[in-house]
Computed example of a mutant assay.
Amino acid sequence: MLSKKTKYGIKALIYLANSPENEPVSILDISTSEDISRKFLESILLLLRKTGFLSAKKGKGGGYYLRKNPQEIPMAAIIRILEGPIALLPCVSLNFYEKCADCSNEKECKIHNLMIEVRDSALKVLENRTLADIAYK
């Protein structure tokens, strides 16, 4: 399940993708249009800026804008930044792996093997879709 932070972050990125290229958009414009708390949106946009998805311009006419073309931003990267692991269990995560405390043998664990399939299916979709794919439809 996606958190509100992730859903709102994706909504904000879609809004920015549909804005004129490299023209800063104010937090107020995004929060009003997408019905997102301004304070909550500020923290999300700051994270997206720190991780290289966005740039910001200060002062009058300032705001946030996409740093890359939406076609170059994979959905998997957005989800990982905002949500964390894509895998449903830490023992199958590619980037956030942790051994399950209650599992003695991952190779024989039926849940582990099923969750690898689930992870791989989700990754196939998320890595092959970009922000442009969802923003422009």
Rank of each mutant, 00 (worst) to 15 (best):
E21F: 15
I27R: 01
I86V: 15
D120M: 07
L131H: 05
P90W: 15
S104V: 00
Q71M: 03
P74N: 03
C103V: 08
E117G: 15
A77M: 10
K4S: 13
N128K: 12
I81M: 08
Y65I: 09
E127K: 14
L66C: 01
K68A: 13
L123Q: 08
L66I: 03
V125H: 10
T32M: 14
S26Y: 08
L13F: 01
R80S: 04
L47K: 13
G59M: 08
I79N: 01
L94Q: 09
E42D: 11
K39M: 10
K4N: 12
K60I: 08
E72W: 00
R80V: 09
G61R: 01
A56Q: 12
K5I: 03
C91W: 05
A122G: 07
L123T: 08
M115S: 02
A17M: 12
D120I: 06
P90N: 13
P90F: 14
E117Q: 15
V125W: 05
S93Y: 04
L123N: 13
E98V: 06
K99R: 14
I27N: 04
R80E: 12
D35L: 13
K58Y: 06
V118N: 06
G59A: 09
S104N: 08
N22V: 11
E106D: 15
R119K: 14
N18E: 01
M115Q: 07
I73K: 00
P70A: 02
E117K: 15
S55T: 13
K58N: 09
P24Q: 09
A132I: 03
N128F: 09
I134T: 02
A77Y: 09
Y15W: 09
L82P: 04
S121L: 05
E42H: 09
I78T: 02
I27E: 01
V25F: 00
I10P: 12
C100S: 12
P85S: 14
A101T: 03
I134A: 05
N113D: 02
S26H: 07
T130K: 00
K50N: 15
N128W: 11
L131Y: 02
E83N: 06
K68P: 10
C100K: 06
P74C: 02
E34G: 08
Q71C: 07
S33H: 04
G61S: 03
S93C: 12
K68L: 15
S19A: 14
S93E: 06
I36Q: 10
K50Q: 14
K57P: 02
K39C: 00
Y65A: 01
E21V: 15
E127Q: 11
G59K: 11
K124P: 06
I14L: 13
K7S: 11
E34C: 12
M1L: 09
K110S: 10
I10M: 10
Q71L: 07
S33P: 04
E98F: 09
V92T: 10
P74R: 01
M115V: 07
K7W: 10
E72I: 03
K57W: 04
F53L: 11
N18K: 14
R67Y: 14
G84R: 00
G52C: 08
Y64E: 00
